[in-house]
Simulated scan of single mutants.
Amino acid sequence: MSEFGKSKVAAFITAAIERSSKTQLEISAEAGFPRSSVLSMIKQGQTKMPLARIPQMARALEVDEVEFFRLAMGEYMPELLRICDQMYACQRLTEDEVALLCEVRKGMNGHGVRMTPRVRAALARFLEEALD
Rank of each mutant, 00 (worst) to 15 (best):
Q44E: 14
Q24W: 07
D132Y: 12
A130E: 06
F69K: 14
L80K: 15
E65C: 01
D85L: 04
P50N: 01
F69D: 00
R59T: 13
F12G: 01
E128C: 13
A89I: 12
M1N: 13
S28G: 09
K106R: 12
E128P: 11
V98C: 12
E79M: 12
R105H: 05
V119P: 10
S37L: 13
R118N: 13
L51W: 00
L39I: 04
G45F: 08
V98G: 07
K8H: 11
L71S: 09
V66R: 08
R105L: 03
E75H: 11
M108H: 01
R92C: 00
M77V: 10
R118T: 15
S2P: 10
D64G: 02
S20L: 00
R120V: 07
K106M: 05
V63M: 04
L127F: 14
P117L: 02
E103K: 03
A122M: 02
P50L: 04
L93P: 00
G110C: 04
S21K: 09
E103L: 07
Q46F: 05
A124N: 12
S20R: 06
A60S: 09
L71T: 01
I13E: 09
Q91V: 13
T23Y: 06
A122E: 05
V38K: 14
S40F: 07
D132P: 05
G110P: 09
M108P: 03
I54H: 07
S36V: 12
F126W: 08
A121C: 06
V98Q: 10
R19P: 08
L93G: 07
C102L: 15
C84H: 14
A10N: 00
I17F: 08
E79Q: 13
L100N: 08
K6P: 04
A122I: 09
L93H: 14
E62Y: 01
L81Y: 06
S21W: 08
K48Q: 14
R114L: 02
R125V: 03
G5V: 04
R120G: 02
L80G: 15
D85N: 14
F126K: 05
A124S: 14
R92W: 07
R19W: 02
D96S: 15
I13M: 11
M77F: 15
M87E: 15
H111L: 01
K8M: 11
R53W: 03
L101I: 09
R70Y: 13
A29D: 15
E95G: 07
S40M: 08
T23L: 09
Y88G: 03
C84M: 14
E26S: 14
C90S: 13
G74W: 01
V66M: 07
